[in-house]
Amino acid sequence: MRRLVPGVLVLAVAAVLSVLIGSRTLSPATVLDALTGGGDAEAVAVVLEYRLPRTVAGLLGGAALAVAGVVMQGHTRNRLADPGLLGVSAGSAVAVVLAITVFGVATPAGFLPFAFTGAAAGCVLVTVVGMAASRRRDASPATLVLAGAAVSALLGAATGVLLLLDSAALSTYRFWTVGSLAALRGYDTVAVAAPFVLAGLILAAGHARALDVVGLGDDVSRGLGRHPLRTRLTGLCTVTLLVGGAVACCGSLAFVGLVVPNAVRLVTGGTHLPLLGLSAVLGAALTLFADVTGRLLVHPAELPVGVVLSLIGGPVFIALVIRTNRRPA
C-alpha cells in the first residue's frame, strides 16, 4: 500500500498530461472548460471525443498488459515471459489479418472481435498442445513455453503468407501491429474492452496467492493443496481476458508486459499481490507517458505509442537485465 501511493500519483500526472497535450495546442484553461462542459465547441470535441477516450484506452491497455506479464511470468517461472509468448499475440494477429483479407474489415473497432477471438484461440491452442505434450497431461511450464513458441511461429507464418498475398492488407495491418491509440474516437472501443480488462484484473488479484505458490514448483504447490492444472487454466483465462482487452484498446504493444513487472519486482519482491497492483498502475502510467511522448516528439504529427514504447523499452530492458545479473551472488 505504501508503495502504491507514489505509483498512483505518477499515473495521475500521466493521465493529466495525456488530456492536456495533443497535436492541437489547447491551453490548460480551455481543456478544463471543455471538461466541465463549457467553452469552445471544437475544444470540447477534441477533449471529450479524442483525448479522454484515448487516455482511458491507454490506461486500460497498459494496466492489462503489465498484469498479464506478471501472470505469465509467474506461471512459466520465467522472468522473460511476456504476453507475446503463449500464442496470444500471434493468435490475435492472424485473426486480424483474416479480418482484413477475407472479411474486408478496415477499422480498429471492426478488428475488435477478431483480435479477441484470435487471442483466445491462440491461448487455447497452446494450452492443448502443451497438455498433450507434457508427461502428466498438466501443461508444465517448460512444455507451455515450447508449445507457445511453436504455435506462435506457425501462426506467424500464416500471417506472413496472408499478408504477402494481399499488399493492401499489409498497410492496414502494419498500423494495427505497431500499436497505436491515435485512431480511437469516442468510447465504443473502450466500452467493449473495459469489461474484459476489469474481469481480468479482478481474476488476477484473486489469483495472486496461487501465483505465489505456483512459483515454488508443481510438487510443492500440490503439497500445499493447490491443483497445478486448475491454477494454470485460471491463469490462461486471465491472460486471454487481459491481452484480448489490451489488444482491442491499443493493438499489440511490446515491452509493457516485460519491462514493468521486472522493474516493479525490484521494489516489491516476489509476493504477487503488491507486484500485480503496482504493475497495473505503472503499466498504465508508462503507456500514457509513451503516448504523450509520441505526440510531442514529432509535433504536430504523432509517433504511434508502440514505436515509442519499443524505443524506451529496449534500452530499459537491457539495463534491467544487467542490473539483475550484477547482483552479488
Partner: peptide
C-alpha cells in the same frame, strides 16, 4: 510434503 531438491524463484526471501 517436501519433494526432492525444490527450487525457489530468484530473489525470494526466506520469510516469504
Amino acid at each position: 510434503l517436501l519433494p526432492q531438491s525444490p527450487q525457489a524463484p530468484d530473489g525470494l526471501t526466506v520469510i516469504d
